[in-house]
Simulated assay, not measured.
Amino acid sequence: MNTTAMTPEASVGKPAINALSLGAGVQSSALLVAACRGLVEKFDVCIFADTGWESITVYQHLLRLERLAAAHHIPVVRVGAGNIRLDALNPASRFASMPLFTLAPNGQRGMARRQCTSSYKISPLKKEVRRRLGYPHPRRVPAAVWAQMAIGISVDEIGRARDSDVRYMRNTFPLLDLGWRRSDCLSYLAENGLADTPRSSCVGCPFHSDDFWADLKSNQPLEWASAVAFDHAIRNGSARATANGHPLRGQFFLHRQRIPLDQVVLRPRAGGEPEQGCGPWTCPATPPAGGGGDAAGDAGRGVA
């Protein structure tokens, strides 16, 4: 299976950089361990795009991965575009819209446009790739210069495997070559002492299930309080829009029930499917390749 995505303009030569998009969730963690063990090609660099609002368990796990990678001479770098939580609440900051649940005055339900993945994950990652190639924006990257970017997409997510949208970066999918499913990644991580690898996502991601919220409330009270406070703060729209005299015509909510998070009666499902983590190319809102527009981005327009 050839799982290297190729663009017509740049289909020859060798990559200048072999990188891993490290989300610090299950699949990308398994890829890093596999590279350290020689199961897949060694990476020149692993890039973690930090939104600033991951769970403490993700940051603790990332520290373990950094130590493991360092022992095998693989650098791990953290990049970012700010703190998504603080930026959303700061009137002086641009708000990269999150797919928040909306409720219009007439009762119409929808979702806000999703820009957070692009702004806080994909853009910083591309910026770092260009820097390492030696052609930071706005310099044009020559057609013969490109980076290979490994993405942690497993066989059960094959519909999300897609090409990069820039010529200087080509996505590859080593887990597809291995034929691994998410369960295989979990088993491999357990064999290597990382059975407790968390899923990677923002604490306040609207796509969380009741299972996540219930676990957060019970086991991470400070992060639960942070999410509850954020939910209250964004009720009438972004701080910047409100300060500029453009309040939301309706209300924003973190939970799909469209009531305050701390008032939701959470109903976790025993034995339910595990939530998908969020990475630059693996946001739960991203439709399968060729599947049309972004559901989160298309729903509820006109409410804000």
Rank of each mutant, 00 (worst) to 15 (best):
V228H: 00
V166E: 09
W224N: 02
L189G: 01
L194S: 10
S201R: 08
L186D: 07
G193L: 03
A214Q: 09
F207I: 05
W224D: 10
A229H: 10
R235T: 11
G204I: 15
T242V: 14
D177M: 08
R240G: 12
L178R: 04
A241S: 13
W213F: 03
S218T: 13
L178W: 02
T197D: 10
W213C: 08
L222P: 07
A229L: 06
G204S: 15
A225K: 09
F207D: 10
F212E: 11
T197A: 15
H232I: 04
C202T: 02
C185A: 04
G193Q: 08
W224V: 07
L216V: 10
L178E: 11
R167E: 14
S164K: 11
C202M: 00
Q220G: 10
A225I: 01
G237H: 03
S226H: 11
S183E: 15
C185G: 07
A229F: 05
D163L: 12
W224R: 07
D165V: 09
F212D: 12
A190I: 05
Y188W: 04
D163I: 09
D165E: 15
F173N: 03
S183K: 11
A225E: 11
V203Q: 07
S164D: 15
D163P: 12
A229S: 13
A243D: 10
P198R: 06
F230D: 00
D196P: 06
C202V: 00
V203D: 05
D177Y: 05
R235M: 06
N244W: 08
A239F: 01
L178V: 02
W180K: 03
